[in-house]
Amino acid sequence: MTDRLTQLQICLDQMMEQFCGAVNYVDKNHGFEPSNDSEEQMSDPQAHIVEEKEFEKNIDELTTDIILKTRQIMALIDSLPGVDVSAQEQLHRIDSLQKQLIKMEKEKIDAIKRKDALQEKVRTLTQDFTIGINESKTEARLV
């Protein structure tokens, strides 16, 4: 997933395409409706005229799409991260996090050292144990 800003910009571009698509649709399929009563209705035998009902339905769909896209964009704008913090605050936070991270890393290394020591201890212990068993076995056999 891309970051929010890129998403927003993609949405914006999509909206532009929707605009184009809508204008294009009206241009290609309109029914030569006169703009006022004094005008005569024009016609063009080559034009592709969609039935009024169908036309209305599609226009409705196109507008709904644009409105949905707008809502999506608005929601994305609202969800942009860190709206209420200033750059200074962010830098402070980054700084302190960095220090914490370094500290944590040191602690982790200590923990790993502890683990290694313990591992070694357990290893020698098992070794001693097996050797002990072995010896007692041979002793038992000798006896």
């Binding site: 970051d3 929010r4 800003l5 914006l12 942009l80 860190g82 962010q90 980054i94």
Partner: peptide, 14 residues
């Protein structure tokens, strides 16, 4: 939106 980018990068880093 592009002006907002540095802010977002800092936020992502955090």
């Amino acid at each position: 939106l592009n002006e907002y980018r540095p802010h977002q990068s800092r936020e992502s880093l955090i």
